[in-house]
Every structure is written in C-alpha cells, then in structure tokens.
Simulated scan of single mutants.
Amino acid sequence: MTADLSTSQDVRNVIDSFCERLRRDEMISRYFQYVDWKSNLPQMYSYWSSLLLGRKEESRSEGRPFPKHMMMLGLTETQFQRWIQLFYKAIDEKYKGEKAAKMKLNIHALTLALQSRLHVMNADD
C-alpha cells in the first residue's frame, strides 16, 4: 500500500527519483547534463517541502523556478510531456494521497507557466 507524502524525506525521495529519471532518459537527458545537482537538489527539496509540508529546509529555495529551467529552451511538446511524465512517475511509484495530488497539481501549474515562457513548440510546428 502506498502512503501520502508526509515528511521531508518523502519529498526528497520523490525529487531524487525524478532527477535520476531525468539523467537517464534518452529523450530529454541532454537538457539536464549541465545542471549543478549539488546546489540545485537542496533548493528543490526546500521548495517542495515548504509547499507541501509547510517546512523550510536548510537551503532556502529562491522561489523562482523559471531561470533554472532556461536550459530547456527548444523543448518540443512531446519532450515536455515526457518531463512531466517522469515527475508523475516518481510520485506514483511510492505515494498516493492529498499531498501527492497537491504536488501533481502544482507541477501541472508550474509546467503550464514554463511552457508559455519557454515557447514550447508543438512537434508539428
């Protein structure tokens, strides 16, 4: 049985699983090859822990996710959907419940904003 996200470690588990999937994925890993994971992961942990659990981690997130996603310029709609799918899979493999659903809703809202700002291209364009 899967449980809901309830601790900072749960959030870290999701983020770590997601980022590992990004690094291994043949379709989109190239967009993340230059990410400084050592500094980026603590910010991701903090951002999501604060949002989902109301907790601030040691490394405060700047709360500005867009600049960090500029390396995704040129992503097609298909590639962008793959990015979202990998995030959802990282959640679904272990968690189910209100906070897991809230994380997905926030990912969806974030991705809509990112798609617009990054001018994600339809594969048919």
Rank of each mutant, 00 (worst) to 15 (best):
M1R: 02
M1G: 05
A3F: 09
T7I: 01
S8K: 04
Q9H: 12
D10H: 14
V11E: 03
V11R: 02
R12V: 11
N13M: 11
S17D: 14
E20V: 11
E20D: 13
L22K: 08
R23H: 07
R23L: 10
R23C: 06
R24A: 09
R24F: 12
D25N: 13
D25V: 11
D25W: 04
E26C: 06
E26I: 02
E26D: 13
E26H: 12
I28Y: 10
I28F: 11
I28V: 10
I28A: 05
I28T: 03
S29W: 04
R30T: 11
Y31C: 00
Q33S: 05
Y34P: 01
V35F: 12
V35L: 12
D36T: 03
W37A: 09
W37G: 06
W37L: 15
W37D: 15
K38Y: 14
S39W: 14
S39Y: 14
S39A: 11
N40Q: 09
L41S: 01
P42V: 15
Q43V: 10
Q43I: 12
Q43L: 05
M44T: 08
Y45D: 04
S46Q: 06
S49W: 09
S50N: 12
L51Y: 10
L52K: 01
L53R: 00
R55Y: 14
K56Y: 12
E58Q: 13
E58P: 01
S59I: 06
S59A: 07
S59W: 01
R60T: 10
R60C: 08
S61N: 01
E62R: 15
E62G: 14
G63I: 03
G63D: 02
P65A: 06
F66N: 02
F66W: 03
F66H: 07
P67L: 01
K68I: 09
H69D: 02
M70E: 09
M70Y: 05
L73C: 05
L73K: 14
G74L: 01
G74D: 07
G74Y: 03
L75D: 03
T76V: 04
T78S: 13
T78Y: 06
Q79G: 02
Q79T: 04
Q79N: 07
F80W: 08
F80C: 05
Q81H: 13
R82Q: 10
R82W: 15
W83M: 08
I84A: 07
I84S: 15
Q85S: 14
F87H: 03
F87W: 11
K89T: 03
K89D: 08
A90F: 14
I91D: 04
D92T: 05
D92M: 05
E93R: 09
K94G: 02
Y95V: 11
Y95M: 04
K96A: 05
K96T: 05
E98H: 10
E98V: 07
E98W: 12
K99F: 03
K102I: 08
M103W: 05
K104I: 11
L105Y: 10
L105V: 07
N106D: 10
N106P: 00
I107V: 10
H108S: 10
A109M: 08
A109P: 00
T111A: 15
L112W: 11
L112A: 11
A113K: 14
L114P: 08
R117W: 09
R117G: 01
L118R: 04
L118G: 02
H119D: 13
V120L: 07
M121L: 13
N122R: 14
N122W: 15
A123S: 07
A123Y: 11
D124H: 12
D124P: 03
D125V: 00
D125W: 00
D125A: 00
D125G: 00
